[in-house]
């Protein structure tokens, strides 16, 4: 019974979040909260690269199949495929051609879109806060797909009125959040909006971030 409960608990638990601090110079610091597991050891690294290449191959295959279907419907399928394949793979080429011809387009296109979607989907989330002393701060959230740039927002020091941690209702629970009060805006800007990390992480970022943003600037 207890093992069952622990298994269920583990299944239901969200991926663990880690905080990475990157400080290239004394006046710049980046806090990144991520659910990506750290790549330690050969196996993890190998798995990561294999996964990436599998995604690339799958995505390319999906695009290719849709292209071929289109070519077939135009009637130039054989010649296009021939250009790809060269002279050698005549038999394989014919078999694939046949398959594409007999499959209905109403199946191929949604299937290809699904495969593309899965290939591009990011399986981790990453949000970061970059603070440049005396200049401002930038929040950044990775998009949920590969190949898309993260959404960022820069707030200059003059516009920042305050940074604070507060609590709010989110779904069925109360969560802590780190927020920036921006001058002239009705709503605060929430840092790490989709991850909403736990209090320990937030407090660390808050404490260090304030130091970097204001106290360093005053000294310099």
């Amino acid at each position: 019974m207890t093992t069952l409960i622990t298994i269920l608990t583990r299944l239901a638990s969200p991926p663990p979040q880690t905080l990475h601090t990157h400080q290239p110079t004394s006046s710049t610091v980046t806090y990144t909260v991520t659910t990506r597991p750290a790549l330690t050891g050969l196996c993890a690294k190998l798995g990561f690269y294999v996964g990436i290449s599998a995604r690339v191959v799958l995505g390319m295959v999906a695009v290719l199949v849709v292209c071929l279907k289109w070519c077939v419907s135009l009637g130039i399928g054989i010649s296009v495929l021939g250009a790809f394949w060269g002279e050698g793979g005549e038999r394989g080429m014919r078999r694939i051609m046949k398959l594409i011809e007999i499959t209905d387009g109403t199946y191929i296109i949604p299937l290809a879109i699904l495969v593309l979607f899965l290939a591009c989907k990011r399986n981790y989330k990453e949000e970061s806060l970059t603070i440049i002393s005396g200049l401002g701060l930038q929040t950044s959230t990775t998009s949920s797909f590969y190949l898309r740039s993260p959404s960022t927002r820069f707030i200059s020091t003059t516009a920042i009125q305050d940074i604070f941690i507060h609590e709010a209702f989110k779904g069925f629970e109360v969560r802590f959040y780190l927020a920036v009060v921006v001058e002239g805006e009705r709503e605060v800007v929430v840092v790490f909006p989709s991850m909403l990390p736990r209090r320990g992480i937030l407090e660390e970022v808050w404490r260090e971030g304030r130091k970097c943003l204001w106290e360093m600037g005053e000294k310099g």
């Binding site: 269920l8 608990t9 609590e167 069925f172 629970e173 736990r198 209090r199």
Partner: peptide, 12 residues
């Protein structure tokens, strides 16, 4: 208790 265990709730 199983799906939102106590450990996951921050103490104020």
């Amino acid at each position: 208790e199983i799906f939102a265990p106590r450990e996951r709730i921050d103490v104020c």
